[in-house]
């Protein structure tokens, strides 16, 4: 992916760019908000990683101008403070995701991949979604394997729906807690891992060959 990295901390930006390159992306660094808007006009990017606190024009204003000018490319905000109010504000202004510093490259990569494939809100929620032989209906809370219904408790079902929605992309634990549990914190105990294990068992009981891949130290992925 071709990423514009807007970050005024030069060392952090350099490190992050190097790590993004390791993950197979290209990253152009700009140090302030005005230059970021200029760079977006000059060239086409696949995504923007935007620090919230910037000299000249802060991150939220850059985001505002981008959206006002009809730029729809995905934006991931970076913030030093993990305050939920900041997060809500960023998302309301049109950010696609939010990452709290210090940024873990694997986490950022997973989130970049997740936001890159278009936005989920285009998809009608009453429709079923599928990945491989697994089909789920988020609205009816029903799941099927090869057309046969699979009965799942609430948490396991929501977990499966999120994995199917992001098939072939890694979901980190933080992402799972945010999206499945709607938590803005990561519990100490391995709740996510526990429920992945229970989901796996249920799917295997239904005759499914374990479709969930564990990505060591990062998270989980559903093979399509």
């Amino acid at each position: 992916m071709d990423v514009l990295l807007v970050e005024d901390d030069a060392i952090l930006a350099k490190d992050l760019a190097a790590e993004l390159r390791e993950c197979g992306h290209q990253a152009q660094i700009v140090g302030d908000g005005r230059l970021a808007l200029q760079a977006l006009v000059d060239r086409k990017f696949d995504a923007v990683i935007l620090d919230r606190m910037l000299p000249e024009l802060d991150g939220l204003s850059v985001l505002n101008r981008m959206r006002a000018e009809g730029m729809t490319l995905p934006v991931i905000m970076l913030t030093a403070l993990g305050k939920s109010a900041d997060k809500v504000e960023g998302l309301e202004q049109g950010a696609d995701d939010y990452v709290v510093k210090p940024v873990d490259a694997a986490e950022l990569n997973a989130r970049l991949m997740a936001v890159s494939r278009g936005r989920q809100w285009n998809m009608p929620e009453n429709d079923t979604i599928s990945a491989g032989d697994i089909t789920v209906s988020p609205l009816r809370h029903r799941a099927w394997y090869k057309g046969a219904p699979v009965v799942l408790p609430k948490v396991e079902f929501q977990l499966l729906a999120e994995l199917v929605r992001n098939a072939d992309r890694v979901l980190t634990r933080a992402m799972l807690y945010e999206r499945v549990w709607d938590y803005d914190f990561e519990p100490k105990s391995n709740i996510a891992d526990m429920y992945i294990r229970r989901l796996r068992l249920k799917l295997m009981e239904a005759g499914c060959d374990d479709p969930i891949v564990t990505v060591r130290g990062i998270g989980y992925m559903l093979r399509a």
Partner: peptide, 20 residues
């Protein structure tokens, strides 16, 4: 806050290097 942030950034970098 500053202490937490200033320590968190290098610590995050350290963790990244260890992971690599």
């Amino acid at each position: 806050n500053d202490i937490a942030h200033d320590l968190r950034t290098p610590l995050g970098r350290l963790r990244g290097q260890l992971a690599r």
